[in-house]
Design a protein around this nucleic acid. Structure first.
Length: 264
DNA sequence: ATTGTGGCCTGCCCGC
DNA sequence: TGCGGGCAGGCCACAA
C-alpha cells in the first residue's frame, strides 16, 4: 500500500505535470473531497492555475499551484494510485488490484495540453483536500533526526509501533514499513514507546532512515525481508524462529520472538 | 492530554 | 458455478 515510499514515487509522476495548466477538474466522487469542499469549490480554486511545484510530507502529496491559489493535498489511503497521461510507475499495489477500471477514477486534473493526472482508488480510502493543515503531521520519517524521534516517542506508554504509525508524531510510516524497521532494529513492537534506552533509540533512528532508503531503492514498502514471511507459518529470516503474529496498535503485526527483545 | 477501539471504504480470495 | 464471509490497513470519530 502507499506508504511514504510509494508517495515519493507518485511525486516523481506529479513532477512531470509542473508547468502545465489546469483546464478542468474532474471530481465525480463527492466522498473523495475532504474538508467540506465541493467539486465546484475545487474547480473555482484551481482551474486556470499551473502546477508550480510538488512536495511530500509523510504520505501526503502536495501540488503547489502558485501564489494566491490553495495547495492541493492528495492522500492515497492504501489503494490509491496516481496516473499521468495513462502512465503510472506502480501498476500493482500490495492489497489492491492491478486492474484499471475507469469507475475507480476518483479525482483528476485535465490539463490544457490534453494531459490528465488522475487518482485511481478502488476502495476510496484516499482523498483530496485544499490547503491541508501541515501542522497535523510529524517530521518525515525519511529524514527525521535523532532528537525528533526522541521527542516523537517521548515518555509514552503506548506501544512503540503505535507511536511510529501515528502520523502526527512521525509522518510516512505504514504497517509494513514499521514491522520491517522494528524487525531490523531488534525491537519488540509492543514495548512502551518511552522505554527505549539511548542505545536503542539511536539504533531505531538509524534503522528507520536506512530501512526507508533501502526499500525505496528496492522499489517499494513491500520489498522488505520480512514481507514474504507475513503468513501464518512465517519464519524469521534472521534466525529461523517461527514469527509471532499479533495485533499491535490496531494492526496485524509480525515480529520475531527471539531477536526482537521486549527490553534491553 | 493520552490511549484504545470500532467503523468506513470495497476488491479479492477462500471454502462451501 | 455462484455466493457469503473474512480480510487488508489508512484514517477518523469517538470513548474512557
Amino acid at each position: 500500500m502507499p506508504e511514504l515510499i510509494e508517495v515519493e514515487v507518485y511525486r516523481g509522476v506529479a513532477d512531470l505535470a509542473i508547468g502545465r495548466t489546469v483546464a478542468a477538474v474532474e471530481a465525480p466522487d463527492a466522498w473523495f473531497l475532504k474538508g467540506g469542499i465541493t467539486a465546484a469549490d475545487v474547480a473555482a480554486a484551481i482551474e486556470g492555475a499551473a502546477v508550480a511545484a510538488t512536495d511530500r510530507i509523510g504520505k501526503l502529496l502536495l501540488l503547489d499551484l502558485g501564489p494566491d491559489r490553495p495547495t492541493l493535498g492528495l492522500r492515497f489511503g492504501m489503494t490509491g494510485r496516481l496516473v499521468l497521461d495513462g502512465n503510472t510507475p506502480i501498476q500493482r499495489l500490495e492489497y489492491s488490484s492491478g486492474r484499471d477500471d475507469p469507475a475507480w477514477d476518483r479525482f483528476a486534473l485535465r490539463f490544457t495540453d490534453g494531459g490528465r493526472l488522475r487518482m485511481q482508488d478502488p476502495r476510496r480510502l484516499g482523498g483530496v483536500q485544499l490547503d491541508p493543515d501541515l501542522g497535523l503531521l510529524g517530521p518525515d520519517a525519511w529524514t527525521i533526526t535523532l532528537g525528533e524521534l526522541r521527542a516523537a516517542l517521548g515518555r509514552s506508554s503506548a506501544p512503540l509501533k503505535a507511536r511510529l504509525l501515528d502520523q502526527s508524531r512521525v509522518a510516512g510510516l505504514g504497517n509494513l514499513l514499521v514491522d520491517e524497521t522494528l524487525w531490523r532494529a531488534g525491537l519488540d513492537p509492543a514495548r512502551p514507546a518511552g522505554s527505549l534506552d539511548a542505545t536503542e533509540l539511536r539504533r531505531l533512528h538509524r534503522t528507520v532512515r536506512s530501512t526507508v532508503q533501502l526499500l525505496f531503492d528496492r522499489g517499494g514498502s513491500h520489498t522488505g525481508d520480512l514481507q514474504v514471511e507475513r503468513r501464518w507459518d512465517g519464519r524469521c529470516p534472521k534466525d529461523g524462529a517461527p514469527l509471532q503474529r499479533r495485533t499491535v496498535g490496531g494492526r496485524t503485526t509480525y515480529s520475531c520472538p527471539v531477536h526482537q527483545l521486549a527490553a534491553a
